[in-house]
Nucleic acid binder design. Structure first.
Lengths: 243, 243
DNA sequence: GCGCGCTATTGATCTCGATCAAGGTTGTCG
DNA sequence: CGACAACCTTGATCGAGATCAATAGCGCGC
């Protein structure tokens, strides 16, 4: 396994996932338990059931969490994008297969010291709770997609979510033309959306034919009119601004 | 809305969801912010988007969390069984419709004082994190069901999960014969499993015809051989004991 | 008891997405 | 360059579950 380990004093994680409110002494302490791991696209980070003696935060690249049934049916239950967190306190063994779907760098923390650190840093525990609740909301939104949306709506929803997230990372607005690289193969998209890869391919072709998206190569998606694509997701289009 | 409010010094919640590790002074304090609310089967606890100025724990009965699309397609994204928790810190507005699917009693805590209490009671914050992570795991298991299981497997999975949970509440073993009342109509089951009510009905009839379950009336399910039913869920049957 | 509303069952038919199958594209390595 | 592998697209057909429709049981109030 290609696992580069290095130390670094300026982790992007500080400013994103965990430590927006950490003080310098706390950051120092986090640094002592921190190391980086790199994975190539396709590599497995951990298998479900493996001992996992670290928690981690995604620095760059994308990983997927998936579950597989004995007969091979697979469901991706979550994507880890930059700043997303992996691992749960108090759990020694991985629950899901974690796979790098693109080249991936993670900032890892050894579990024991990290848990000890969390125990005496309340705002870090709060931040963990906040992140977990956000993930729970995302999972529940995905349940609506898996249970009730058509193939076309599923594809449109996926593109909207990836597009929005991608724009957020680049600090761009999500209106007007938007372009991004799909971090998933057709098969991975199928496993995320509860479809077959053929259906994914056909629906992408249909959206292309209708001008809702353009393809540059197989992987790069251009969305000329983000609002128009959102109208295909089946969701309320007000972006979920409640209150 | 039938909303009985009473105070009570011996809340079952103490021993379950929140306070297994609370000390007597903390329990006193929790009591000052606690009140009970009762709902009849079918009543709505809150609508998505409503202001919700309390958090709550289910004392008895069952509630469902659901999302509905404009055209009426509905997905139940979670069931709240006794001891389950509702509401998230820092969120003033409900994200999902919450409906009593049976007669329901909830133990409620006013949000502001509860949040303040949480902020200075670290083990409560930890307990919240633990519960949220468990819910996340449950949601992800359900994603596999929604995305990849057949109608038959979905029904079998539902019965296994309700049966197991019901047995746990009654402190019974989950082998040999097991009987419980279905807390959901056929329609609610359909909305939970991502099916139509006709398909639910047909699959239940099929399981009955094959002797995997018996029906006593419309709602009471008897499972003569729990292992045999588990074999129909498509899951590994070792009950997920990893490590 | 009778009629009404709600829930559940069952049948007939249709349809969306799965499955099976055949190419086409792209990239890599000798 | 050519061969091979991985990934993607498209077509033909199939089938699980949706949809449409009719009927049946089951309280509940009058």
């Amino acid at each position: 396994m290609t696992t580069a380990i290095k130390r670094c004093g300026e982790c992007p994680i500080r400013h994103r996932a965990l430590c927006a409110r950490c003080e310098p002494p706390e950051l120092e302490e986090l640094d002592t338990m921190k190391f980086y791991r790199s994975f190539e696209a396709g590599q497995t980070v951990v298998w479900a059931g493996d001992r996992m003696d670290f928690m981690a935060s995604v620095v760059s690249g994308i990983a997927s969490l998936s579950q597989t049934m004995e007969d091979g049916r697979t469901q991706i239950v979550g994507l880890l994008l930059p700043s997303d967190f992996l691992g749960r306190p108090g759990r020694e063994f991985a629950t899901y297969d974690v796979t790098a779907t693109t080249d991936l760098v993670m900032c890892c923390f050894r579990r024991k010291p990290f848990e000890a650190f969390m125990a005496r840093t309340p705002h870090l525990a709060n931040r963990m709770l906040e992140m977990t609740l956000d993930e729970l909301d995302a999972a529940r939104e995905w349940m609506l997609l898996l249970g009730r949306k058509t193939a076309r709506e599923k594809i449109a929803s996926l593109f909207v979510i990836i597009g929005r997230r991608d724009a957020a990372l680049k600090l761009k607005e999500t209106d007007g033309e938007l372009a991004f690289d799909l971090p998933l193969t057709r098969e991975a998209m199928a496993d995320y959306l509860g479809l077959t890869l053929e259906t994914v391919s056909r629906q992408i072709s249909a959206l292309k034919r209708e001008g809702l998206i353009r393809l540059e190569g197989k992987r790069r998606i251009v969305i000329p009119d983000f609002q128009a694509l959102m109208a295909e997701t089946g969701d309320d289009c007000d972006g979920g601004i409640i209150g």
